[in-house]
Amino acid sequence: MNKIVQKVAVAAPVCAVFLLFFVLPVALMLSASFERIDTLTLEVVERFTFAQYFKFLTDSFYLRILLNTLWISAGTTLVSLLVGYPVALHMSRLEGLSRQIILIIVLSPLLISHAVLNFGWLIVLNSNGLVNSTLRSAGLIQTPLPLLHTALAVILGLVHSHLPFIVLPIENALRSVRPEVSRAAVSLGANSFRLFRYVTLPLSIKGIVTGSVIVFSLSASSFVIPVVLGGVRVRTMASVAFEEVMLNLNAPFAAAVSLLLLAMTTIAVAALGWIGRKLQPPALVQQAAKPASEGAA
């Protein structure tokens, strides 16, 4: 009896905090997205309407922003994969201090504020920044290239800050393949390309999917990086939602936009998961490739 009282005494405040300050606000936001307010007086004029969703989905201006968000996040995911995979592969072969040092460097962008990293990229991409100065002193360009406020700058910033999320799961997947598997392939005559294409890559699909899902959803919902590196020219759904609630005080529209964003990422994540399952080698093969301690059923 005493134990049950104890558990309830702990459970009550924990649940209360999360229900009151997390579940309730999200529920209120969901209901707010169905409201319509007078944009001047901010009074609610309609309680239940799909007006906010219609406004977004029927305006080509906003639809273009949706497409923009999609391709920026897809591009970020793809580039992160291409850049992160070799790092994961290299890390999975290392042990001890050298792996630890690489791990610290790979994880460091997560622990430095995005606001600070943005500042660094501004100095790199500015008209008198690192890239333009280097190109100019090499005589390759006369006038500075407009690198800032482009989709490319946004993707660069997003790849940089989300790389750890792709490297870690892939490295994890590669580490759980026993070394004998690659050795067997090589001794059977596979060259390094075929070893990668038919052995290493298929066995790391799980890590690739996990990483892609995280990078896609995080970069789709990031707004600090697009706002600074994309400026007014490159807008994403998250930055529109941010501006709507903070500058235009149109909370219902901001709520609807961010919920549409959530729906979009959920669909994309489901699609990625489906593709991943299609590409994955059969369960039996995966099981057999694991180290003896894990593989034995």
Partner: peptide
């Protein structure tokens, strides 16, 4: 963004 907007409203 979802957490941020819901919190500022709340």
């Amino acid at each position: 963004v979802v957490i941020g907007i819901s919190m500022i409203q709340f």
